[in-house]
Amino acid sequence: MIMTKEKTSAIHIDNKNLNHSPMEMQNKEIFTSKNFNLWYGDNHALKNINLSFHENEISAIIGPSGCGKSTYIKSLNRMVELVPIVRTEGEILYRDTNILDKNMTVEELRTKVGMVFQKPNPFPKSIYDNVAYGPRIHGIKDKKTLDQVVEKSLRQAAIWDEVKDRLNDNAYGLSGGQQQRICIARTLAVEPDIVLMDEPTSALDPISTIKIEDLMQELKKEYSIIIVTHNMQQAARVSDKTAFFYQGNVIEYNDTNIIFENPHDKRTEDYVTGRFG
């Protein structure tokens, strides 16, 4: 029987769907929220967040303005506590330790969980002093070690070649994109476990943005990264997993290619296709 079927291939979706693979294939959990709630005064800003982030992954958090994504990421390193009217309930576990417990000081947590902010905020000091700030306050004083740490961090931030001849220049003399990379180097200098990034490229030009996105892919090998972004193409480009927040809830959290190719929840679909928000 001669049966020739001419089949053109349908689009192949590579479902690296970790939700269905055995536990050994998944990376270790690094941050888990359990029924985490947060109020700004009377405003219930985060509602029962249950979310797990894994090692050596880039996880993106997307959602419209006011959905709680910045609030959430600032809860992970307790920076949200700088606002006096904040109240929280529930747990956030960093490697099995509840960060809201008294056993871990907030300084210890923030040393392990670094943060890069939306607007580059280098200190008005020299480039060297900016990067050496972290190690210095943690007791590393000898110049040789500091020199090595500074170089290593600037290399990791992909900016060593641009600044190696002017380490004593004021960091304010650099462009926005360079300043942001200095801030990244500064964060890396204390060798954290995780780097949180709150819209790190939204104030930068496209080329700096691309440099930093490439940088993230390199950093992923040693660190875990959680990034909040309102740029969906960026989330699609850089992240392994994406969480969609809406009105204080996590609507969907899955592999990035699923979120952007075939999301399960209609609200996610409407958001990523730009039908609202």
């Binding site: 920076m79 670094g114 306050i137």
Partner: peptide, 13 residues
């Protein structure tokens, strides 16, 4: 600017 304080606190200072 507050961003400076945040940058420092964010590193565990």
């Amino acid at each position: 600017p507050n961003s400076m304080r945040e940058g420092s606190l964010g590193m565990g200072a």
